[in-house]
Amino acid sequence: MSGVLGWSSVNSTAIPLEWGTLYGGLVAGGLGLLLLPTTRLWLRWVGLACGVTGLGLVLISLPDLQDRAFQAVFGALAAITILSSAATVTSSRPLYAALWFALSLIGVASLFLIQGAQFLGVATVAVYAGAVVVMFLFVVMLAQPEGSASYDRISWGWYVPPLAVAAGVLLTGLVAWQLLSMEPAESVHRHIDFETYDVDDNGQLVGAEIRSWMITADDAEDTEITRDEWQERKGHYAGGVFDKAHMAGFGAALFGRRLVSVEIAGTLLLVALVAAVAIMIHGKRSQEGSLDE
């Protein structure tokens, strides 16, 4: 811990607790100041500067990825995501909030993508930013055509924003503290199907190509392998950013083991559609009834 500010943790895996809470407090304090009514515009600028400073300190002090280019891309995407989320929460017009949320979703999708989750990146853009946000925009247009109402510029009294900042800081800070003070596990437990794979006398897996670690045969046993062995055998997972095997593996996992869940999710979507239509019809009927009375 000899460096200045966050640079000390470049070589260690954990932010010191006091620095972490300081950064979190800066970010959240910035958010809280930003939320104040728009009559004092300079306070929002102070809040923005405070939040950006805190975010920069947090990003600098994140654990080192040992890959400068990847770290730079990750930092930029994380900054875009978090800043646009903050703008979603603090913008007084719901229309702008929805648009900022779309940008935040694009940031999340990019984070998925650079982690190798290609399908989820595309699905987030298509389903969330494409469909859900547009639905929100439609509702904003139907329900509140004019800019910002008075309840958009004020919260629940003067003491709620500081309490909410405290709640958010405590939650995030405690979670971050726990995460950063964890140590990686040395070994992992996996279920191995011994009918498919050969095991030598020492209990090590040999021979057969391992296609999936998610095997739950009835006669599976608990086996302990070291982390390195597991790392080199998990090639099937296709976690690389541009791994061409990703979609094939993902589809096999989704429509193989999780087939029933997919069917249930499809049914759930249908039920939700029917429910939404039913709510609208019922609401219209009850309104007509109240007009008649």
């Binding site: 970010v27 947090v58 909030a97 958009d152 709640a167 979670v175 995460l179």
Partner: peptide, 27 residues
């Protein structure tokens, strides 16, 4: 893993904060 978990926790925290503070149903 740690980097992603921190960013995820930050997003969750901002969401909690907004849910507690904002009064607009859509937001």
């Amino acid at each position: 893993l740690q980097n992603y978990l921190i960013v995820g926790a930050a997003l969750f925290g901002i969401g909690v904060f907004g849910l507690l503070v904002r009064r607009n149903l859509i937001v």
